[in-house]
Write a protein that binds this DNA or RNA. Sequence first.
DNA 1: TATTGTTATACTCTATAACTATA
DNA 2: TATAGTTATAGAGTATAACAATA
Lengths: 152, 152
Amino acid sequence: MATAARGPATDSPASLAENLCWLLARASQSLTIELTAALAEAGLSPRHHCVLSTAMTGEYTQTALAQAVGLDKTTMVVTIDELEAAGLAERRPAAGDRRARVIGVTKAGVKKVAESRAIVARTQAQILSSLPAHERAPFVDALTRLIGRESV
Amino acid sequence: MATAARGPATDSPASLAENLCWLLARASQSLTIELTAALAEAGLSPRHHCVLSTAMTGEYTQTALAQAVGLDKTTMVVTIDELEAAGLAERRPAAGDRRARVIGVTKAGVKKVAESRAIVARTQAQILSSLPAHERAPFVDALTRLIGRESV
DNA sequence: TATTGTTATACTCTATAACTATA
DNA sequence: TATAGTTATAGAGTATAACAATA
């Protein structure tokens, strides 16, 4: 079974197209596992990192932040709870709306993001190293366009 | 980029590399939702389709099938249960091992796969249409290499 | 009436452990 | 002792609905 364990031995001509969704799911899963393990050394999950790192780039309310990273607002509540408990982020009153909270990043959070970004960069470099250099940008580009597709 | 709602307005140079895992997760999620909706008209989930479609390509025991499509053996039990209840697949005794079961596809299953493959092909064509034709094969290729990376 | 954030709840997918019957 | 399949269970991640405070 030298090849049997590698993947489905599809013999139909439709196999390539048929596998797109499956390929994405597998790639996403294995990379997430890898990144989760790498980020654990900073005590963050990929979602923590993504939210915290994004929060640093502007003044986001919780809802705006949720939309920005593609999370449900209820998931965002839990995520912010955890980041706040860790002292990395905090809910600040929004300027013009007493309902809304702006998510601020604390000093400790800023330091943590620097740390986690280094980890992420290292991990992704490892991952992308399996692609020829000239294919990397087009690949990421194609992915981006695939995501932008439906929301346009 | 006046589109704050489109994605994180990252201002760091690391944004591209930083988003790889996130991009894959988003792409996988949105495509899975789309494919799930499309396949619902055939009464199948993407996982059902993938397992059934793969089972047709050879003589797989449950465990072999699980490895082939990247599912846990316990998930495979449930999947086969459902496919069997729907009359699309069946557990047959394996030739040389009384512990193992070969997953066979029934006549109804074969017809169903033809139907679901058409749906999948149509859906993927739609999805890939957002990429220039000459980028599609390299993109799928890159994805495949990314997955093959760790198991090698 | 609509929206922000919250809580509670449920559902899917996946992972872990223990069991059986074979090998 | 190890393996194929099963069962039960637990854990993520996400989604839905209802609520309070505010707009």
